[in-house]
Simulated scan of single mutants.
Amino acid sequence: MPRKIWTGSINFGLVTIPVGLYAATEDHTIQFHQYERGTTDRVRYKRVNERTGEEVGYSDIVKGREADGGVITVDPAELEEIAPGRSRTIDISTFVELAEIDPVHFQKTYWLAPNSSEHYRPYNLLRRAMQKTGQAGIATFVLRGKQYLTAVRADDEVLALNTLYFADEIRDPGELLEDQSEQAAPTDKEIQMATTIIESMSGAWNPEDYEDTYTARVEELLAEKARGGEAVPSEAPPQPTNVTDLTEALRRSVDEARKGRKPKAKASEDLSALSKAELDDRAKQLGIKGRSKMKRAELEEAITNTPAKAS
């Protein structure tokens, strides 16, 4: 059972529904400790008073900010006291079309579940109503000392809460692009060719098709070093396409796209010339299971013995 990270209630109109907040995702990133190079000595961080050099207990630390030549300190309990709703309510102020929210505002997803079976009916009422209307409830609430703007929406079985960035937290993308010359505008032919590539590569969104290959490679690196081996570098990233070569690159991409997304491995092909990343990609295209845990030799054998899918 996932751990509840917040307890409170959703308020819409005069209806109050006690709920718990749960993380909707989990991080599979490999965690490392830090060691001094050439030794097995752990490197640890300590909270140290910079004037005395002495370590400070966590309970003796307060927050503060410099102002007018001095420092204003705030106790965590004071921050809790001024939190809206004492940090225990998700107050829906407006319902909006979910499609109207620009994805750049989305931050992180949580699940909301009723605190007890007696609250299932009002909980399901809100979920079904939002599901029917395609609306999301915009609300604010406080979690771990920070106020969040949120969108409460109906998922297939539960209510989901997405934390959102406030408008003043979104950077203006126009600042990233300098004045562009007329040469920066693509031609109609280039747009058509790029459209053809996109259409040929289009498919249904299936998240199970995508895997964290980098984490698998880190695990492989650790296993190889445990055997006394060394890291094998991946292939270098492709070079940027020159403007003069853009049309030719598009033409070749269209030709490849019409043949299929990726060339299929042939029995006579020399797989030893491919990088591990390219072998992983081939195995994925061929639908080979368990490829992320295979060594290079196992991948080559599996690719050679797997018939290409009909295009």
Score class of each variant (00 low, 15 high):
2 P>D: 10
4 K>E: 13
5 I>D: 05
5 I>V: 13
5 I>G: 01
7 T>R: 14
7 T>K: 15
8 G>W: 03
15 V>S: 09
15 V>W: 00
17 I>H: 06
25 T>R: 11
27 D>Q: 06
28 H>P: 02
30 I>R: 03
31 Q>W: 01
35 Y>G: 00
36 E>N: 08
36 E>V: 11
38 G>F: 07
54 E>C: 04
56 V>M: 06
56 V>E: 08
58 Y>V: 08
59 S>Y: 05
65 R>D: 00
65 R>G: 04
67 A>D: 07
67 A>M: 14
78 E>I: 01
84 P>A: 04
91 D>M: 09
93 S>Y: 03
93 S>E: 10
97 E>R: 15
99 A>G: 07
100 E>A: 15
101 I>P: 00
102 D>V: 02
107 Q>E: 14
109 T>L: 15
113 A>F: 02
114 P>D: 05
117 S>Y: 08
117 S>G: 07
117 S>F: 10
118 E>R: 14
121 R>I: 12
125 L>V: 12
128 R>I: 09
129 A>C: 06
129 A>G: 10
130 M>C: 08
130 M>P: 06
137 G>Y: 03
142 V>E: 07
142 V>C: 07
142 V>D: 05
144 R>T: 09
148 Y>G: 02
150 T>L: 01
151 A>K: 04
151 A>Y: 07
152 V>T: 11
152 V>L: 05
159 L>R: 03
163 T>C: 01
163 T>Q: 01
164 L>D: 01
170 I>F: 09
173 P>G: 09
176 L>K: 11
178 E>T: 13
179 D>V: 13
180 Q>G: 09
182 E>V: 12
182 E>G: 10
191 I>A: 08
196 T>M: 14
204 A>R: 10
206 N>K: 14
213 T>S: 09
215 T>H: 00
221 L>T: 09
227 R>A: 15
231 A>D: 09
232 V>S: 04
238 P>A: 10
241 T>P: 04
247 T>C: 04
253 S>Q: 06
254 V>E: 08
255 D>Q: 13
257 A>V: 09
257 A>K: 05
259 K>S: 08
263 P>Y: 09
264 K>L: 10
269 E>R: 09
273 A>H: 10
282 R>K: 14
291 R>S: 06
292 S>K: 10
292 S>D: 08
293 K>I: 06
294 M>D: 03
294 M>T: 06
295 K>C: 00
296 R>H: 01
297 A>S: 13
300 E>R: 11
300 E>G: 02
301 E>T: 15
303 I>C: 06
306 T>L: 09
311 S>T: 13
